[in-house]
Design a protein around this nucleic acid. Sequence first.
DNA 1: TGTACATCAGTGAACGCGCGTTCACTGATGTAC
DNA 2: TGTACATCAGTGAACGCGCGTTCACTGATGTAC
Lengths: 215, 215
Amino acid sequence: MTLLASGVKEVPVNRKEKAAETEAALKVAARRVFARKGYLNTKITDITAEAGRAAGSFYNHFAGKEELLEALLADMAASGDESARTEGHLSDFTDPAAVRWHVAQYWDFYKEHAPTMQALRQAAMVSETFARTVASFGATQAADLTGHLAHVTAAGMRLPARTELSIAMMYQLIDNFAQMWLLDPAPAGWQPPTDEEAVEALTRFVYRGFTGRDY
Amino acid sequence: MTLLASGVKEVPVNRKEKAAETEAALKVAARRVFARKGYLNTKITDITAEAGRAAGSFYNHFAGKEELLEALLADMAASGDESARTEGHLSDFTDPAAVRWHVAQYWDFYKEHAPTMQALRQAAMVSETFARTVASFGATQAADLTGHLAHVTAAGMRLPARTELSIAMMYQLIDNFAQMWLLDPAPAGWQPPTDEEAVEALTRFVYRGFTGRDY
DNA sequence: TGTACATCAGTGAACGCGCGTTCACTGATGTAC
DNA sequence: TGTACATCAGTGAACGCGCGTTCACTGATGTAC
């Protein structure tokens, strides 16, 4: 009865494939539901219903909602590592193009992984474990940037504050601005920025803030 | 038996006073518990225990946790109105002092009301109603600032983006930077800024970002 | 001022809802011979 | 290739925990006369 129409991968041929398919379906469903109702408001049965599976099926794959989120984070980290391998990593922040490159990088990453980022954010409000995940994510970002800011002071420009605080400000600005426009429903009556506009706005603000130069 | 020691207001003399006292005790307890475990992780019985009352007592005063938060917000708004009446409201953002005044205002407000702000933030993640409260709070702030930025463009300086986006960036920066240092436990090994340092850092970053001038 | 009754804030054990989690069952896939 | 048994992904009704909420009760305060 299982006619394998050429190229159609819908029907799994063996057990492992079937299980993998269900697990993938649960992840996809979870991201959709998280985006719609938020991680904290999502029930296990919301996810299984969205995936078209029975409630009990969930526990064949994940011990709970937290573990599912861990899996989504792992996927995200994997795809992040890939794009981090991109060359063309501009690092001299006295050049606006270097700032723009980093802003765009972050913006695109956030856009691609919006539901997972949102879920992580919400989970961190409630769970010490995920709060630490967020913290170490931020620390990684910060480490990368410290070197870039050395160029600024070397060029005789004054950062707005000591290095860590300057980085923290940049991070808060970009991260939350991205969250504002990529995740939450846009404030009523506000014209959301295009991607280019958002990246340009952030680049200007950050470049100016860091260097004290106009641009 | 109730010896009213002179000046001691501990023992209420009548029913209304007693009820008011319990209600106040619940609010104080709630702010303490919210600060410690976060709004979302707080159970009704955590609050009543902290206040030294029975669980049932809570419902003599509030219909639920949400209504308690509404009450805290009302208190906060009341105290906010007071300090808003302060004169010396500098409004020309081409002057760094005007930027600093606003930053300091917001910083001090946040510091004073940290547990309630934190609770509101968490509630907004989960409840449409509180999300709207946050949005309209932000809109109020934004309205005040629009005029201030007109001075900047009038003086021939270029904002980093259209007015709304510029304001949104400032807001995200200040609000989340405050949240980072006034609420969450400071990141391990980081030296938290003093109030003056934080205000100065934000002032520099925002002033530069808005005007493109050094400072 | 004194007495009898009404009202009300506060109490805490008990109730019950929502939802996460389990588990006996089904039917399909895999394996042994 | 065929048959008999084992394994396993998936099912969904049922179970039970946690916690919000209720409610009969207590003792103190307020009111009437």
